[in-house]
Design a protein around this nucleic acid. Structure first.
Length: 465
RNA sequence: GGCGCGGUGGCAGAGUGGUUAUGCAGCGGACUGCAACUCCGUAAACGCCGGUUCGAUUCCGACCCGCGCCUCCA
């Protein structure tokens, strides 16, 4: 009997055994970006975390359909385009591409489906009509073109975020507006002025509210009820709460079986956010650190814990990856990874990941394999190397050639080409042979000052940058 | 005000009612012309106060501190 996948479900606050609706076809949806600027490392956390879940699910089940949307209609987009004097379509295309590039640099697999909100306006309108029909939504009484969801029409509204309507109003931060019958009601459709993008609808020319696109795209691509819906904790309320309201009330069914939310990336103990301005763009970080370093840093803590982001964390991630890549590189001998090695169902790394995606535990297990690999007899190395690589594959790590890892750290600020270095290394070896250790050490120090380390192995000298 | 989360060794970060997390950094040793890598060994922690228990970092309660959501936000 193999252990089963367990996931923390925000709906119950418990770690639960994952029981799919249909074990032949797993459905996963993760909220993607609203494309009006570059994403920061906090935005990248769910993408990387759920990429690991996607990889794990693919290992455990025959088919996994993973959808991650692009929200390309939103007031922030409209405002940014106006400020830039840029066409909205050009803006959203530009940042959707940038997002895709950044996430590729973090070695995330492309989702099965990347639906765009503006390709699903008809589905959204259809869903809103259904909600009105069933008495869960209404066009505003003033006839101004707004359509609202009536939260009081839903028995257990607030169950995901664990709050009652009374609690929410007590916060006194809900927007009271005269087009709402109840202050907690939220917008499904809003009118557009002539200079704003809009689509014809039964309620006049307008555009969708924030939450409806996810519900409509989930129904179209994954079904009325899906297995797993992921996202950052800050989406629990109102976004996911409202998605539940829309999905459950429109379909008269459940909406999502397992809600999975990742914790924040913090800076100096505070949440990284666009509004606080304390964010670090993935794009900027990639100039200084390789994508794998960023990915490793994001995976070094459990996905639900806060992750304090700092230079220190990134440097440690880099050093730790060095250790793992050294094991793959070997002590100068060539190690060919054995072919056709697959991890046992109860392999420590798989067991760790099945326990609510415990990546820290999985990485620890990888270190154990690396240590074994370092110590192993030559005959045992190919299998261990293959095992370590297979573990890395599950986590989306260690997919580079070890020599490249050490020689191409991405920042060649030493001004030396690989050929220059090879020439100096050759000169040093000649000096060593002539017992001219002073000159040999001089060369090594010179290279060291340039950030290049030398290692003398039985198979010759190798260098790392 | 309502609801919720967390405080682990220098740093990062898992986990557990009683025996090592793990990694980075440190220290000692082996290897090396000297290094680096690797190996062997080593030190160091569970916010504070009570309670339950033979025994608590792990369970319960209070307290202190930090953070988050209730508004756009991954």
């Amino acid at each position: 009997m193999t252990s089963s996948l367990k996931l923390h479900n925000t709906l119950t606050g418990q770690k639960e055994t994952f029981v799919p609706l249909n074990p032949e076809r797993i459905t996963l949806y993760v909220c993607g970006p609203t494309v009006y600027n570059y994403v920061h490392i906090g935005n990248a956390r769910p993408v990387v975390a759920f990429d690991v879940l996607f990889r794990l699910l693919k290992r455990l089940y025959p088919e996994v359909v993973y959808a991650r949307n692009i929200t390309d209609i939103d007031d922030k987009i409209i405002n940014t385009a106006r400020d830039n004097g840029e066409d909205i379509g050009a803006l959203t295309t530009r940042f959707a591409e940038a997002f895709s590039e950044d996430m590729t640099a973090l070695n995330t697999l492309p989702p099965t489906i990347v639906p765009y909100a503006t390709d699903h306006i008809a589905e959204m309108i259809g869903m809103i009509e259904k909600l009105i029909e069933k008495g869960h939504a209404y066009p505003s009484d003033s006839g101004d073109g707004n359509v609202l969801f009536a939260v009081q029409s839903m028995q257990d509204y607030g169950k995901l975020s664990g709050r009652s309507l009374d609690d929410m109003l007590a916060g006194a931060r809900v927007e009271v507006a005269d087009y709402k019958r109840y202050p907690g009601d939220f917008i499904l459709w809003k009118p557009s002025s002539d200079d704003q993008p809009g689509w014809d609808s039964p309620w006049g020319r307008g555009r969708p509210g924030w939450h409806i696109e996810c519900s409509a795209m989930i129904e179209k691509h994954l079904g009325k009820v899906i297995d797993i819906h992921g996202g950052g904790q800050d989406l629990i309320f109102p976004h996911h709460e409202n998605e539940i309201a829309q999905g459950c009330c429109a379909h008269g069914t459940d909406y999502v079986r397992y809600w999975v939310h990742n914790g924040y990336v913090n800076i100096d103990g505070e949440k990284m956010s666009k509004s606080l301005g304390n964010f670090r763009l993935v794009r900027e970080l990639l100039k200084q650190y390789r994508g794998e370093v960023l990915r490793f840093a994001l995976l070094s803590a459990h996905y639900r814990s806060p992750l304090n982001f700092s230079e220190d964390v990134l440097n440690q991630a880099n050093a730790t990856l060095d250790t793992l890549y050294y094991a793959l590189l070997g002590r100068g001998e060539k190690i060919e990874a054995a072919a056709d090695v697959s991890l046992a169902d109860e392999h420590p790394v798989i067991v760790a990941l099945k326990d609510d995606i415990n990546t820290a535990e999985a990485i620890s297990a990888m270190h154990a394999i690396a240590a074994k690999l370092n110590k192993a007899e030559p005959a045992d190395k190919p299998a261990l190397k293959a095992e370590l690589l297979a573990c890395g594959e599950l986590l989306g790590l260690l997919n580079q050639d070890p020599t490249d890892w050490f020689q191409n750290k991405g920042h060649n600020d030493d001004g030396l080409s690989n050929d220059d270095i090879d020439a100096l290394v050759a000169e040093r070896n000649a000096s060593k042979k002539a017992k001219n250790f002073a000159r040999a050490d001089e060369i090594r120090d010179q290279l060291k000052d340039a950030g290049i380390q030398l290692e003398d192995t039985r198979e010759g000298t190798r260098w790392t940058r």
